[in-house]
Design a protein around this nucleic acid. Structure first.
Lengths: 206, 206
DNA sequence: ATTTTTTTATTGAACGTTCAATCAATAAAA
DNA sequence: TTTTATTGATTGAACGTTCAATAAAAAAAT
């Protein structure tokens, strides 16, 4: 039933179907037929729109990374407070955004993470994202502490965020976003407390 | 060239070869032939000793988990100091043990971690290990802080350890064990500082 | 307004490849 | 001679990709 202008619709359908399939059976058992069935189309269409399975997987990872960046950027631009604490808090909140943390996205995220160890293209994507998180954190920490300490604080918080993600993706019940945010913010408070920064006026995470 | 008593030797050879193969090309492209070539034997031998590829993969994950547990247990039994700080410090040190952190083991570890999301047997193994780490940490923290705080400290430190592992496995240069240990110990100090515990006499990680 | 032509979207069977598992044959050690 | 260890060609299943065929929509022609 071909109508014109199907391309963007199909691309999005197939990307969503890829995440659903990975959530369902894992990347290893995600075949083009299973993805196609999820999207309600035939298998051949994948090669038509993405040049092949690899192209679709790459596009899917791209989308996840873009969504994550957007979630962080939106919260940072909405800040009234320009303190480093507020900026870092926004980064934490963005990283535990609802759309990212929910089932399919989280499992797809971890699957690509593991896969990126041996696929240069995915590794490149993952690296770019990683560096941005680290350099953003580092820049904000440097506003309130010396270079070396800022570097360590940034690495520590980045590891904490990733670790919470990882554990969330692995537990059958999925990530408890509230608890994760609480732990990350508490850690942030501890990092900043050593340099005499004032506590935030309201700590609104339970 | 069959000699008697080959079984334990071959089993270990094949487990090591499996880690080498995963380190080299990733779990997705680790075939029985590649493993066999690494071990210098034929492909058929894998089914003979492990009942199939899945059996070998399971045995490999078992070995990694056992090695990790042993590394922690050895350090905890060697403690002169019985303080909670010393015990938790030993858990950290064990988790960043040299044999675990080095190339093949780390990448195999992460690969299985991702894979365990959809393979019940691996998930079971991973869960048992996970609970032991958490409950050990929780038990030690409870010696110096209230229940709820101990729970959060344990979850935070567990996430930090996993996050450092994850990032270490992903960076091309591999995990910088010294830095990881330093960050984990610093975090531990921060957690304990809130409850007025004395700082350790000597902080011997650079 | 109808019919014809062109364009665009989609299908699904066929093909070639890859892989894990099997097992009869083989060879060294007991 | 018997037992144990190992091989490697073979088998069958599963997968990604391709492509000729098809059908709907849009455009052009009547």
């Amino acid at each position: 039933m071909p109508k014109v202008g199907m391309e963007p619709i199909r691309r999005q359908q197939l990307i969503n179907a890829t995440m659903a399939a990975i959530d369902e059976v894992g990347l290893a058992e995600t075949t083009v037929m299973r993805i196609a069935r999820h999207a309600g189309v035939s298998a051949g269409i994948i090669s038509h729109y993405f040049g092949g399975k690899d192209g679709l997987l790459e596009a899917t990872m791209r989308q996840i990374l873009t969504d994550l960046s957007t979630a962080v950027a939106v919260r940072r631009h909405a800040l009234e407070d320009d303190s480093s604490r507020a900026h870092i808090g926004a980064i934490i909140e963005g990283n535990f955004d609802r759309t990212q943390v929910t089932g399919p996205a989280a499992k797809t995220w971890l699957a690509f993470w593991a896969s990126s160890m041996h696929k240069p293209m995915l590794q490149r994507l993952q690296n770019v994202n990683d560096r941005r998180l680290y350099s953003n954190l580092c820049h904000q920490f440097r506003r309130v502490m010396p270079r070396l300490e800022a570097r360590n604080a940034a690495r520590g918080l980045a590891a904490m965020i990733d670790g919470l993600w990882l554990r969330g993706a692995l537990t059958p019940e999925g990530l408890d976003a509230e608890e994760a945010r609480f732990l990350a913010h508490t850690y942030l408070d501890q990092l900043l407390a050593h340099y005499g920064c004032q506590q935030p006026a309201s700590n609104t995470y339970s």
